[in-house]
Amino acid sequence: MIHEYALDPAVLISWADNDRDYSEFLREYGLGTPRIVSSFPKKKANKLRSYLLKNSPQNAQSLTGQRYTEMVLKIVESIVVRDVQENDGDDWAEAAIDENRRAPFDVILSAAEIREGNNVTPTSMYSQGSIWNHPGQINVSRTNEGLLAAVLNLIRLADDKVVIIDPFGWTSEAIGFIRFMLQSISSNRVSVGLPVIMLFYKEKRGSGMSGNGSPSADHVRQQIFHGLTGDVTNIQLEVFELRETENNDVFHNRCILTEHGGVITGHGIGVSGNEHHTDEVILMSPDIYQKKWQQFVEKNCFEKASDAKS
């Protein structure tokens, strides 16, 4: 539900000069949308910002120039970090073709048509069946394969953190999905490093009526690593068992977040394994994403019952 876009600077300039295109860009690209711009042809956000600003309209103080600068700053708030061989040449399209054949983008959005199957232009992107169109909500099978397919790009393109939030993230079904996800996390990546994986689940207190309580974070972490093979066994995994407190929000949502956005799921990561069972995966709006990121990552508004880190 998140897609990496190689964006031609010439397209950005043309959009800055048009009221409708400028407004659409602010609405349809960046955090909270399916379209995240690639760092290509650079490796880092600050280098991409400098590169794009060098291509700004001649009169930077004009309305077009101010819009262009605003668009560039929005792009670099959340980009897909791509390990590229930086090229200072002027032919953006030629460099995009070479990079696409090395490690394909989801979409190449260029000013003029280029001969790549994943290419669209400002003219063709509105055509019926265009690859520019992405759903904000999908129905998935409640199997490891079905759920992973829905969030694969979110996981694959993450360079910083993958945050899994599920009150029942400690169950065997949830642990099984995380294990399945981690075994696939190094495939088809566009950056060398692997993100930190953070799991937050809710403390369940056992009793004679409700059965066993939730296990400790250390136990859950050990269970996740059990049976994993290859380089993924060295991944940084942090697990947190959280307790609700008075005068704070309740812990009930199930979602997955990265630096590129987040999705909400109805049943969470504890899949049933039955292909006839389904769930909905919904792309988060920017305000809901920021709320969850602050609640769990930046401030952690709950009390820690236990935690386990690498």
Rank of each mutant, 00 (worst) to 15 (best):
L147S: 13
E238P: 11
I185D: 01
V196P: 02
I164C: 09
R67I: 04
R179P: 08
I269K: 02
G136K: 09
F180V: 00
V297I: 07
S39N: 06
G227Y: 09
I97D: 05
I256H: 01
R20L: 05
R35V: 15
V192N: 01
E94S: 09
G268V: 15
T265C: 03
F240M: 15
L157V: 09
N234A: 09
G211A: 14
A174Y: 14
S23K: 08
A10G: 03
G193Q: 05
S39C: 07
Q137Y: 08
V151L: 14
N18G: 07
K43S: 01
E94T: 04
T245R: 14
L194G: 02
Y29Q: 07
E4V: 00
S184I: 05
H252I: 03
N234K: 06
R142W: 09
S310Q: 12
S310K: 11
E259F: 05
K202G: 01
G30W: 02
N133Y: 15
T64M: 11
A217W: 03
D218Q: 14
G213I: 15
P104C: 14
I269L: 02
T229Q: 07
M71L: 15
R49G: 03
G176A: 06
L148Q: 07
G213T: 00
Y126M: 10
R189N: 00
V220H: 06
N139M: 08
D83K: 08
D166F: 12
L199I: 05
M209G: 03
I178W: 01
S38M: 11
P57T: 06
V76A: 08
V81Q: 07
L154F: 07
N55I: 04
E298L: 12
N274E: 14
F251G: 05
E203N: 03
V84H: 02
L52T: 00
K44G: 01
A111E: 05
K292T: 11
I235V: 12
A95I: 00
Y68D: 04
A93V: 01
E275V: 13
I164D: 04
Q128E: 09
V163S: 12
A112E: 11
E99Y: 04
Q61Y: 13
V76F: 08
V239L: 15
N87D: 12
V250G: 04
I235K: 01
I175A: 07
K43W: 15
P195C: 00
L228M: 11
G266E: 11
D160S: 13
P135R: 00
R82D: 00
E244A: 09
A93S: 12
V11H: 03
Q290T: 10
G213L: 15
D166S: 12
G169R: 07
M71D: 04
T64C: 08
H219W: 09
Y289F: 15
L157N: 12
S141R: 10
L147P: 09
A45Q: 03
I288Y: 10
R20N: 05
S141M: 12
G206W: 03
Q85R: 01
A308K: 08
